[in-house]
Amino acid sequence: MAMHFLFPAGGVGQRFGADQPKQLTSIAGKTVMEWTLQACFETDRKGHAFIGLSPNDEQGRQISEGYQDLSIFSAGSERFETVLNGLNRMLEIVHPNDWVLVHDIARPCVRAEDIQRLIDTCLISQVGGLLCQPITDTIKQANSLLTVPKTIDRSTLCAAQTPQCFRVKELRDAIQQADKMGIAITDEASAMELAEQPMNLVVGSSDNVKLTHAEDAALVEFYLKQQGRI
């Protein structure tokens, strides 16, 4: 079965505090979107790529049209809606049992070798999965900042990253079901968890950070330099 990419890129980046979507931020002469697409397209995949853009995102559309085999679809108002729109679009032209790698467009430092390892793991096991990073900080759980906190065993915790890789129709159905139940999902794995689907946890690199705040841009540039991409 083929392995496709899906990039939700319809966010406005409210926390980023800029007058344009954060994926259009320029770092070392390229937009964040271009850095992300470059890394993902370096993998040994055999499928199509789909990107969800807001209707008024002319710059994003111009960038996307410069890539061969990258189809544009309409983004939703929320991330999960964008992913759902993309999956429904995919099911018009791809096999339901094909695989899809959903990747945040604002994670430009993702390493091609990590993506490839996730792909290989899912294809060998025939079970979906996601990149993640083990938690190294001591984690406290509290109802408020004034209560006595509870320390959580960090050996059982990891921070979810993207890409997250699942079969196209199974993921579409899981997200639809979560939406019908009124359950907010923050990533694709959350929907698959609700559907009680097993998944692989593949350790990714710590520099696979998400551009969220304006000050993150300097960190992204540093990591891109460390990777030898700048």
Score class of each variant (00 low, 15 high):
Leu118Lys: 08
Ser144Val: 02
Gly228Thr: 04
Gln176Asp: 02
Ala218Met: 07
Lys225His: 08
Gly13Ile: 10
Thr121Pro: 02
Ala18Gln: 09
Gln226Cys: 04
Leu118Asp: 03
Ile105Ala: 05
Ile105His: 05
Ala112Gly: 09
Gly11Cys: 12
Gly76His: 05
Ser190Asp: 15
Val83Lys: 00
Gln68Cys: 13
His4Gly: 08
Gln23Pro: 03
Gly182Ala: 13
Ile105Asp: 07
Leu84Val: 14
Val94Lys: 02
Gln62Gly: 05
Glu113Cys: 12
Ala218Asp: 04
Glu78Gln: 15
Ala159Gly: 09
Met33Leu: 14
Ala106Tyr: 01
Thr151Met: 07
Ala214Phe: 13
Leu171Gly: 11
Ala218Lys: 06
Gly10Gln: 02
Met33Lys: 00
Val203Trp: 03
Ala159Trp: 03
Thr121Glu: 14
Ser205Arg: 05
Leu211Gln: 06
Gly17Arg: 11
Leu224Asn: 05
Thr212Trp: 08
Ser77Cys: 06
Leu201Ser: 02
Arg117Gly: 08
Gln62Tyr: 04
Val148Ala: 13
Gly204Ala: 08
Val102His: 06
Glu81Asn: 13
Ser206Ile: 03
Pro149Gly: 08
Leu145Phe: 14
Tyr223Asp: 03
Ala112Asp: 11
Asp114Thr: 04
Val148Ser: 13
Asp57Thr: 08
Ile185Glu: 02
Cys40Asn: 12
Ala106His: 01
Ala174Ile: 08
Lys225Gln: 10
Leu130Met: 12
Leu146Thr: 11
Thr212Phe: 15
Leu145Cys: 03
Gln126Cys: 08
Ala159Phe: 06
Gln177His: 12
His213Tyr: 14
